[in-house]
Design a protein around this nucleic acid. Sequence first.
DNA 1: TTGTATGCGTTATCAC
DNA 2: GTGATAACGCATACAA
Lengths: 346, 346
Amino acid sequence: MKKKITLKQIARELDVSISTVSKALRDSIEISEDTRQKVQAFAKLYNYRPNNIALSLKNRKTKTIGVIIPEIVHHFFSKVISGIELVANKRGYNVIIGLSNESFDKEVINMQMLANGSIDGFILSIAKETLQQQDYHHFKETINQGMPIVMFDRIVNEIHCDKVIIDDLKGSKNAVSKLLSNGCKNVAIITTKDYVSVGKLRTQGYLEALEAYEITPDTDLILKVDDELVSDDRLESLEREIEGLFQNNKNIDGVFAVNELYAIIAMKVARNLGMKIPDDIQFIGFTDGVLSKHATPSLSTVSQHGQEMGEAAAKLLIDNLERDDEEERYTTIVIETELIERNSTK
Amino acid sequence: MKKKITLKQIARELDVSISTVSKALRDSIEISEDTRQKVQAFAKLYNYRPNNIALSLKNRKTKTIGVIIPEIVHHFFSKVISGIELVANKRGYNVIIGLSNESFDKEVINMQMLANGSIDGFILSIAKETLQQQDYHHFKETINQGMPIVMFDRIVNEIHCDKVIIDDLKGSKNAVSKLLSNGCKNVAIITTKDYVSVGKLRTQGYLEALEAYEITPDTDLILKVDDELVSDDRLESLEREIEGLFQNNKNIDGVFAVNELYAIIAMKVARNLGMKIPDDIQFIGFTDGVLSKHATPSLSTVSQHGQEMGEAAAKLLIDNLERDDEEERYTTIVIETELIERNSTK
DNA sequence: TTGTATGCGTTATCAC
DNA sequence: GTGATAACGCATACAA
């Protein structure tokens, strides 16, 4: 078959000018019916498609969105991507992926790589390391260069841009309230260190729920895990930590975990310790994924609606990109969480 | 701060020509030490970065790889992406994602969108619908237009290109042999319809393992599920099908499933039927994911090494892209599978 | 109705 | 040592 063909080649072949071809293909009325047909036929025959790169250069927009996420082998993030891709494609945009791997340097490098003309705007969720170092200059610079950013899930107030989040506080407060209203008297929480904004907020929701039930929080029941990174060694030590939690607090009858994996592991430990779920102890996790659905017993979770978050983020970004006025008004969309009750709660 | 700056603007600002600036920035010896320093200082100050799009247009290569996969919310595919991204970035390439959603049309459209200059080559895994319709013209056309393709996992012999696969036959034969050597006498298989090439091969491996143990296959023990698509209704009916399988064949003492989910569900059904795992019945799944690791009991699986597949595919593609000679020699890389023994087998 | 010229940002070639 | 020019592929204002 034939190689990619350009306007110039068609023009030469048909012995007309490039602009005639261009116009003919765009159905311009300037061009005679005759040549128009001729050109279009030829173009179709050779399967002509305008070169995206040339168009991007000319229009100064690439019609592609850069997405930077900490990790892709992760149910939540892949759901988000899926949502982004859905609306992006619907509106004629491509999606280009960069993984930060939770590393500050990779986040910066990836953004630089993409910011030099490859994309029109970013959708991103901040790497743990960046959150820890609290160094956000790369976001600021990107925005100052006129490239819009939409942050989702892991955001930071310091940066002014569009944001899509869930109400972590409310979601976890609901979850813990559910445990309490189900009769739990001693609810433990397994959470992350405070620099992860969502971990902090979810812990706060836990505390507020307790307060609403007039229960004084017991610091012994708050387990702050050092890192969310899922290396196998970490998992084993996590198991031991959780085991310690249960053994030192025999009265625990409810557990709220800020992510799915922590909850699943906690259930496993509890089961090994001979506890019956949900009779002796009930569990709720945050972030709904495959694990929750197929665990035994299936885990009740707070669903983040990752796909919707992705859709909202993409819509926000594209709307911004295609808006004429230069007015800078950033909006924050809050996606409602949903408590999915399964068999780990009564 | 400042907007994106171009060569032209620097030139104007410093009152030199564009080409002088260009050369100065590339440390050309043609340029005097003096102006070179001046230009470089100015460029650094204004954080100049060459525009990727312009470079792409000039060099006729974009340094980006297009990846088309059926689904991203899937442990295996996200692992592959992760691997692709790793080597791509290391070699200065970006990765752009298209999701086919197992649909033929979306696969075609996505490829067209990207093939018009946005990328240098494809890495892809074929959509189920495409496999079913056996319409591969879009692959042929892409290749004929000079755009290389690397296929992984779901491939098709009819198309000549680089491929990365696992030895599905050997992997499943090993798995089933394991069950047999563990003492299973009646091993069932839960597989897909034959048009999914990997499903077919894995079924064949099952049959060969039986043959090696001189067991005549019993068609009652071969359950061919209609679709791998994970809609919730499908899952329920799948459960019922599997339940039927067990009830009609009370002697089943081993199950091999061609994916993780089927295995997990089968385990659940077996447990509900009162069978003890792995004492009464043993399970092995194909495709290692989070589910296998965290199921109760944890599931023994055949790991596909998705990340490695992605790395191999990216390496194959980039090597091809950067190779000078025009010689067309396609290679197929076979990634070794690995049987990971967990608690669902003795 | 058709064609010419210009520009998007860059680099390479060649002239000064 | 510096600069003008062409080219990558396309669209478009303007000229013929």
